[in-house]
Simulated scan of single mutants.
Amino acid sequence: MLTTLTVSHPDAMHELGILLGRQLKPGDLVALTGPLGAGKTTLTRGIGEGLGVRGPVTSPTFVLARTHPSLVGGPPLVHVDAYRLSSALELDDLDIDFMNSVVVVEWGAGMLDGISDSLLDLVIERPTGAGADTVETPEGEEPIEPRILRVTTTGPRWDSGLQLGL
């Protein structure tokens, strides 16, 4: 199922992540795709908060994957940055416990085929150039622009739906 929504502000992206995190269970796989600065790590921080994991949740660009243990008896969050990986085989080499963790893979498009029959695929579109919805910011800071988020759920895990209301 495909759902499209507009996320108006980084704080709203974080809040969406919290909502998602509260719904995720061990074995859930989340793929995040979008350009630099789209909000992938902001969303993942919210997921970590919703899961109740030890933080801070930061981009794992230089380590490829970080595991954040639960502080509340839930599953750990494994946060992967697949940007520098060239194939799904390299992802497999990271020896991730997909069955007992919630795994979020930034730049995961095309890297997760066959790993799970259940996938939450989020594509974040970042506008290029100031639009009518751009929020003014102090001089020198990047403008705050809304993001378009396309969420596709695959597999029986999501048959009962996903709650995305903000």
Rank of each mutant, 00 (worst) to 15 (best):
M1F: 15
M1P: 12
L2K: 07
L2C: 10
L2V: 09
L2M: 10
T3G: 07
T4N: 14
L5Y: 15
D11G: 10
A12I: 09
A12P: 09
H14I: 01
L16C: 06
G17Q: 08
G17T: 02
G17K: 05
R22K: 11
L24C: 06
L24R: 02
K25Q: 15
K25I: 07
P26R: 00
G27Y: 13
L29C: 03
V30C: 06
L32H: 13
G34W: 14
G34L: 06
G34A: 07
L36I: 06
G37W: 08
G39C: 05
G39M: 00
K40Y: 13
T42E: 06
T42P: 14
L43P: 13
T44A: 01
T44L: 01
T44W: 09
R45S: 03
G46R: 04
G46K: 03
I47N: 01
E49D: 15
L51S: 03
R54A: 14
S59H: 10
P60G: 00
F62E: 00
L64D: 03
P69G: 02
S70M: 06
L71S: 12
L71T: 07
V72M: 12
G73I: 04
P75K: 02
P76Q: 01
P76C: 05
L77Y: 15
L77P: 07
V78T: 06
A82N: 04
A82D: 08
S86W: 11
S87R: 13
S87G: 12
S87M: 09
A88M: 14
L89F: 11
L91W: 15
L94H: 08
D97P: 08
F98Y: 09
M99S: 13
M99V: 14
N100D: 05
N100W: 08
S101T: 04
S101C: 04
V102A: 06
V105R: 01
E106G: 11
W107N: 01
G108L: 01
A109H: 13
L112V: 00
G114C: 05
I115Y: 13
I115Q: 11
S116E: 03
S116P: 09
S116I: 00
D117T: 10
D117W: 15
S118L: 02
S118K: 06
L119C: 03
L119P: 00
D121Q: 11
D121K: 05
I124S: 07
I124V: 07
P127R: 06
A130E: 10
G131F: 15
D133F: 12
T134A: 08
E139H: 14
G140E: 13
G140D: 12
E142W: 12
E142Y: 14
P143D: 05
E145P: 03
P146H: 13
R147T: 02
R147N: 04
L149I: 03
R150N: 05
R150Q: 09
R150V: 02
V151Q: 01
V151K: 01
T152E: 12
T153H: 05
T154R: 10
T154C: 12
G155R: 04
G155F: 08
R157C: 01
D159T: 09
D159H: 10
S160P: 13
S160K: 10
L164D: 08
G165S: 11
L166Y: 15
L166C: 13
L166V: 14
